[in-house]
């Protein structure tokens, strides 16, 4: 266990918590938030892995992958939020009907 391991485990814990939220929460905005936190956990793991490599500087390849990942995450979030708005304006709901079979809306 060194410092990088703590960050890696924290990133994995974030990933697991967000995975739980993604499955357990119904509200679509919460699901979008969960996907973002899930991605944040992955980024934390990658950054910590980069720090663990020996050498004078941190490994630049995971850093570049995180940079790419952040841009993709922003794009996914934007489109997902627009879709949530469209779902709400079209159906008046912010969840999927099949998540809500007992109809306690």
């Amino acid at each position: 266990m060194d410092q990088a391991d703590i960050y890696i485990l924290a990133g994995m814990a974030l990933f697991a918590i967000a995975l739980h939220a993604l499955a357990a929460r119904r509200h679509l905005v919460r699901k979008v938030l969960a996907i973002n936190i899930l991605g944040g956990g992955c980024f934390l793991v990658l950054i910590a892995v980069a720090r663990r490599a020996p050498g004078p500087v941190a490994d630049p390849v995971p850093h570049a992958m995180v940079l790419t990942g952040i841009v993709v995450a922003v794009s996914v979030t934007a489109v997902a939020l627009i879709l949530v708005r469209r779902i709400r304006s079209a159906t008046g709901r912010t969840d999927f009907p099949e998540d809500n079979r007992d109809d306690r809306v």
């Binding site: 266990m1 391991d5 890696i8 485990l9 994995m12 814990a13 990933f15 697991a16 918590i17 995975l19 739980h20 499955a23 793991v45 980069a50 663990r52 490599a53 020996p54 050498g55 004078p56 500087v57 941190a58 490994d59 630049p60 390849v61």
Partner: peptide, 23 residues
């Protein structure tokens, strides 16, 4: 979810001793 976390943590801690990296 705990199982997933346990698997990930095991993979993280059970790493090769010398990781060269790409730097």
């Amino acid at each position: 979810v705990m199982l997933v976390f346990a698997g990930l943590a095991w993979a993280a801690l059970d790493r090769p001793a010398a990781y060269p990296g790409l730097a």
